[in-house]
């Protein structure tokens, strides 16, 4: 009797623990995307997307607070906290001139998301080595060389660089190639690219998604394009002028007049009915 009593107690205990465990919530594993960009104006941008995997695909976590930090073996700086947008993205701009901790140009950027009731905590980091990307232009030959140097001004070879020309909504690619032993790659710019009214075009040099350097972009205006005057066709059809176009006025008032003529003629017929007894 005593042993069976104990057995019942053990069973109840096991069921209780199992019951509590079955009610415990399984947290989702958070995933992330972490990118670094050195912008053409000298600012640096950290982008992080926090997302979870669901049955319908990857879904961004909106309203998540993401902490960014920069560190080396000897120093650590908290850069700031950013809340993700509706698609799960958080962006942090580090203004030009801000001294980041670095050893030989290398900085480790870290991100931390504390998680919530249903999503697990997440941390990630990436090592970025700061490089300088610059143009070396040959005005006569219409060639643009992209030069990559490290923090000490030494050339960086075998880095893939890309040259493009800025257009209204996108970039027109000119070429992409790896730098040589002098850290340089030269591109010939076509002479028939339409520019603004004075022939100015904007050259864009890019290092794209490099594992060591991240994204780096520089821009330079040159007078190598064909001068162009753009006529904006919308201007001719604009409707924000004081009066409407003549054709529209004729149409609108024409319709009014035609309808009015028929209406008043029909009304006249009705008015005459009592007189026709």
């Amino acid at each position: 009797m005593k042993s069976s009593y104990k057995l019942v107690l053990v069973l109840v205990g096991v069921l209780l623990i199992a019951g509590i465990d079955s009610f415990a919530q399984n947290k989702e594993k958070a995933r992330n995307k972490f990118e670094y960009e050195k912008l053409y104006n000298g600012n640096k941008k950290l982008s992080a997307r926090i997302f979870v995997k669901t049955n319908s695909g990857l879904v961004g976590v909106p309203g998540a607070e993401v902490s960014f930090a920069a560190e080396t073996d000897s120093a650590k700086v908290k850069l700031g906290k950013v809340t993700t947008d509706e698609d799960g993205w958080a962006y942090l701009i580090i203004e030009k001139g801000y001294e980041l901790p670095q050893i030989d140009g290398k900085t480790t950027f870290g991100l931390t998301y504390a998680g919530n009731d249903s999503i697990k905590r997440l941390t990630d980091d990436m090592d970025i080595t700061d490089v300088n990307l610059s143009f070396k232009l040959d005005e006569e030959g219409k060639t643009a060389a992209l030069v990559v140097t490290d923090f000490a001004g030494q050339p960086v070879d075998r880095t893939k660089v890309k040259l493009a020309v800025k257009r209204l909504y996108s970039l027109l690619p000119i070429g992409d190639e790896r730098t040589d032993s002098t850290g340089m790659m030269t591109f010939e710019v076509p002479e028939d690219i339409p520019g603004d009214a004075e022939g100015n075009i904007t050259l864009v040099g890019i290092i794209e998604r490099d594992r060591k350097f991240g994204n780096v972009e520089i821009r330079q205006d040159v007078n190598w394009g064909i001068p162009n005057t753009y006529s904006v066709s919308e201007e001719k059809r604009n409707l924000w002028t004081q009066s409407a176009p003549t054709w529209m006025q004729v149409m609108v008032f024409g319709v009014f007049i035609v309808v009015a003529v028929f209406f008043f003629y029909a009304l006249y017929q009705v008015v005459m009915i009592p007189k026709d007894r």
Binding site: F262, F263, A266, L267, Q269, V270, I273, P274, D276, R277
Partner: peptide, 24 residues
């Protein structure tokens, strides 16, 4: 009823008005 008694003239006028309005 506007004094409508169905005389020929009244019929003509009303039907004309109806046709015009239907067409408009």
């Amino acid at each position: 009823s506007l004094g409508y008694k169905g005389t020929e003239n009244q019929k003509k006028r009303l039907n004309r008005a109806l046709d015009i309005m239907a067409a408009v």
